[in-house]
Design a protein around this nucleic acid. Sequence first.
DNA 1: CGCGTCTGCGCAAACGTTTGCGCAAGATTT
DNA 2: AAATCTTGCGCAAACGTTTGCGCAGACGCG
Lengths: 355, 355
Amino acid sequence: MATIKDIARALGLSASTVSRALAGHARIPEATRARVQASAEELGYAPNRAAQSLVGGRSSGFAGLVLTDPGYGREDSYLGDYIQGLGQGLAEGGVDMFLAAIPQGQSELSVIRNIVTSRRADGLVLGRTSEVDPRVDYLMSTGFPFVTHGRVLSDAFSYNWVDTDGTAAFGAAFDLLYALGHRRFALLTIDEPMTFRHHRTQGVVQAIERRADPEVTLTYATAPRYDPARRQQVVQDLLLRRPRPTAVIALFDSLALTVLQVAESLSLSVPDDLSVTGYDNISSAAMARPGLTTFDSDTYSSARETGRMLIARIKEPDAECRSLLIPPKLVLRASHGPAPAHRTTTRTMQQGGRP
Amino acid sequence: MATIKDIARALGLSASTVSRALAGHARIPEATRARVQASAEELGYAPNRAAQSLVGGRSSGFAGLVLTDPGYGREDSYLGDYIQGLGQGLAEGGVDMFLAAIPQGQSELSVIRNIVTSRRADGLVLGRTSEVDPRVDYLMSTGFPFVTHGRVLSDAFSYNWVDTDGTAAFGAAFDLLYALGHRRFALLTIDEPMTFRHHRTQGVVQAIERRADPEVTLTYATAPRYDPARRQQVVQDLLLRRPRPTAVIALFDSLALTVLQVAESLSLSVPDDLSVTGYDNISSAAMARPGLTTFDSDTYSSARETGRMLIARIKEPDAECRSLLIPPKLVLRASHGPAPAHRTTTRTMQQGGRP
DNA sequence: CGCGTCTGCGCAAACGTTTGCGCAAGATTT
DNA sequence: AAATCTTGCGCAAACGTTTGCGCAGACGCG
């Protein structure tokens, strides 16, 4: 309600002086600044963001995350963690978070374009990056500040990104299972060209190449992202394949949990018949029985870093582009174990294997 | 980049006419409007929100959700569902969603005050309402449009709210368990005066009164909201109590899941020794073994309704206050069953009870 | 034909803030 | 004592949009 002019009037000053005092300008003496500060406090003054924005040419205090689609992040705690982290990271710099939903019938790209041209935000965070990503291309072409969570495949241009090191993690997953005697692997992926799919796949492919063990086999299974029934079908087909893989490396936890469910319905014991690993450490992973062995990339913290990086970018648009590759932590639970013995198929002997 | 003046110049019109044409004013002929529309399209014009906001006195297109604290909604899919739903509801009305995090060392109330005075949003959504809620009092006093998700206890004033019918649900939970022979009940609650705690508690208390069965006992256990270790301790104390309750009604899923975990660590079988119910149907509830019997209040849809209601409120601030009480759906899973027989304590006889 | 009404549009003010420029009075230097 | 610099502050323009008022021309009516 109170404006800068109210303060000016109350103190017998001009609006300019008040503005400068509030901003901490050099030519304003400490005494005046204190008076202004006190009066502002007393009148409950808060600057009108719209006005600041208008004169400054920028939106003054909003940075956005575009929700790629209504299903995004709803599988588990992921989006909640991410938003809380991003919110904290942005709040540290006094920037508010703005979330753009995609209205029915609009494309994400058109929403982004609209945000840029209407100056509704100073910067943007992009999630779910795909191998070639038109959103990145567009934002690069406009010079609008942005940070991606995840990367695109091309190194042709440089931009700010934060990502988790899926390659390292999936290499480690393979090594863990290989050491436990597994040789028949399956990689459960999705049918969308997300960049993380590429990196994680590379992780196990490279690990296999390093071993150079001719006994190792890797079969791929590709599940749809959003259709639970078809997803289950894909997993079931995989588990019914002969010879059955002994270890399923899933691209992320919700796929791994589907494996757990299907295995249960097929009366397969995890980990005695089948080892399963995931990625993300969503909260269901801890609740599932057996608990899911997975990787924790600390969504909250990496989102906070993303926020900080975006603020830095907004403040200094010409600075060198930074990137952050976060190594996830292996979370050992009960969904993995020694490979079932090759020679015998009697399951009853293996009871109570792992504590 | 393009402004209204660019369109005006290109068409030989004045800015006022362009503005009116875009807004669909009555005195502008169809022909002119079409020309303006075309030119706007061609120039990639999007109105500068800050300018609109400044002249309109409102923020023009932002409605906010205040994240009550960094832990809020991170236990599971709740916040993700909520945000996606709210975003959709607001997007339908062309309103963007703005999320305010609480910076270190600030109170939620001060953040809200700041939003109101700086006109950063046109309306606010409040979650996690407590029995008496200073945020509601403050917003009522300012006349700022808001909708709460959850209620306050007092009927003294009227405001817009959306809530789930916890009283009905917890009554139903009691009836379900009572019919299965349970008589020793425990209600697992939290140590914070949230309004939903009151309503849900009332649900079982009233159901007990309706039965008027002197055999029924109800013990309360109160867990801390955020300290997992102490929460486990409280649950363990409860399950070690003699005589042990045969049915634990938990205030929400994450508490119920704690019961499941502690029961497992105590080698108690759920549901043979103990029945457990929750509320919310978070995704972990389906993954837990046994699956958690709970109530689904369709977070996504109720959040969308909240968004719609807020938009209505913003558009017509003087309209009658509306409210929406959503009956949740019972989701039957495997965490509840017949009460263990009173006379015998041999557990082995009860194997394979429920399919 | 004279009067009133309607139509299509422009002028200018206003929203609250920032900021370049300028000015007077005092302080410092030469 | 004159010249220069510094300090403390105000004037006014600008950001892009909306909107009340007004004006000229066209039109309708008697």
